[in-house]
Amino acid sequence: MKLLVVEDETSLLQSILEYFTQEDFLCEGVGTFATAIEKIETFNYDCIILDINLPDGSGLKLLQYLRQNKKDDGVVIISARGSLEDRITGLNLGADDYLAKPFHLSELNARVKALIRRKYAQGASMLELGNLQLDLLARTVTCNKQPVVLTKNEYDLLVYLLNNKNRVVSKQAIAEHIYGDQADNMPSFDFVYSQMKNLKRKLKEKGCDELIQTVYGLGYKLSL
């Protein structure tokens, strides 16, 4: 998987690159409009993570350029401007997804993976870890070949953890992933604990216990 990250904030760029490199992506990062154009013209990427405010031009112009040249690289916009209109403008110009800053890297990871799956139907529609299987098309989960019945939130949670497997995902990231902007209205993470408790219990019932670990109250990690 080839990934291009266009972000002028070096620190943020490094964070993104580090995270995605660990996810076995082939990552390249650039900080300016000009170098981004250069890269796009020379190579094809599976996904481009694009910041809008660049020192020498707008990320939206880059997106327009990309679409006018019939390049269908997947594009996820990351922007400090997160209003509905900004999102609509970005998506209308041909972005595949739009994520407002500050975002969680685990969320960006999940979005990029979902985008790649949608766009290229790669890795089919199955997410697996050990004897846990999740079918994204049928929206079913099996554990040791036994079906696990999950609520919508629990299912979303499991998909999120599988997309970020072997990583600690913070409870804040989970809250925002499941409830979106509504998470702002939830000052406690009670609901994350309870959803997670139920999910763990259901997986344990089918013999997939010990898959989800709690990491010092910071978050959760799905790994073997």
Partner: peptide, 9 residues
């Protein structure tokens, strides 16, 4: 966003 990403790392 930078702080958040560094914390995640």
């Amino acid at each position: 966003a930078i702080i958040r990403s560094k914390l995640e790392l």
